[in-house]
Computed example of a mutant assay.
Amino acid sequence: MSKIPTLADRLNKARTPSTPEVSDRAKRGLVAYIGAQPDTARATKDLADGTAATGIGRVALSGLSPQGLACADGCAFCCILSGADGGTITEAEAVALHSALAPLAGQPDGRAWHPKACPSLDPETRSCRAYEARPMICRAYVSTDVEACKSVSEGQAVPGPGTLGPYHTYLAAIGLSRAALKGVKRVSTYALAQVAAAAVDGVSLDEALVHARHKPTELDAELKRSKRDISRV
């Protein structure tokens, strides 16, 4: 009788399009995470909805103290989103974001300040109204130059803004989770902008998740973009 592979076995064999260093870091974090869970069912659920990947990313961010950042409350040029997607987030992050914004349904949102702004914003103060529930992409995106952020929001490629390393580890962890759970449980990602807009427009969580769910190829594309970003550093 063949041995049934454990989650740890599946993770150790999993591959994802990232640099070896980032992939190994994410894999070690995931194996440690599932080892700390009370049972396989809980570990599987946390891998599938991105709780594990998000946790690993946030722990890594908490150990960083970047110097010279220009980020401040109300400086929201980074919240002017490109395209209709706005960023890749996990199911756990999508649920938390929708829950934080749903009570604000019907109120003016960031799009009253700028048509491409994140709906999470207060249009008057430009502060995030879902700050505690903001996804990893929001937590990890920083800048040393406000004018550079403004230029990026206008479509210009300039130095200054960028994502911190833990974001890349988080993405790799999602990719590894998907590979490890292939044939066992679906691991989906979602469009940040669509989830936020659905919440403030009064759309239910279930419906928001259906319409904001990415095609599987989107995560692969984001991982490849992440790998290119790392190679430029």
Rank of each mutant, 00 (worst) to 15 (best):
R129M: 07
G160K: 08
P103I: 03
G155N: 01
K150R: 15
H98R: 10
G83A: 03
L69M: 14
S153Y: 09
Q107M: 07
S143K: 02
A96E: 10
D122N: 15
E132H: 11
G63I: 10
L64I: 13
C138M: 14
P108E: 11
D85R: 10
A102M: 08
T125W: 03
G83C: 07
E124W: 00
L97I: 12
T88I: 14
Y141L: 14
I89R: 04
R111K: 13
P108C: 10
E132G: 04
P66A: 12
A148H: 12
A133M: 00
C138S: 09
G74S: 10
E93S: 03
C78H: 05
G86R: 05
A76N: 07
R111L: 01
C118E: 02
G106C: 07
E93T: 00
A76W: 00
E147I: 02
A117Y: 05
P123M: 02
E154K: 13
P119F: 10
C79W: 00
Q67M: 13
C118G: 12
L64G: 13
V142H: 02
A148G: 08
S65W: 04
A102V: 01
H98P: 03
D145C: 10
S153W: 01
T90Y: 04
T163E: 11
I89D: 07
S127D: 05
E93C: 08
G68V: 03
A157N: 11
R134N: 01
A105D: 06
L101D: 01
L104E: 03
Y141I: 01
K116M: 15
H114D: 15
A102T: 04
C78D: 11
A133V: 09
G162F: 03
P135M: 00
L101F: 06
C79R: 09
T125N: 11
E154F: 02
R139F: 01
C149M: 08
Q67R: 15
R111N: 07
D122Y: 04
G74R: 12
D109E: 06
T125C: 06
P123Q: 06
S120H: 08
T88L: 15
A70H: 02
V142S: 04
C75R: 11
Q67K: 15
A117N: 10
V142G: 00
A133L: 09
K150Q: 11
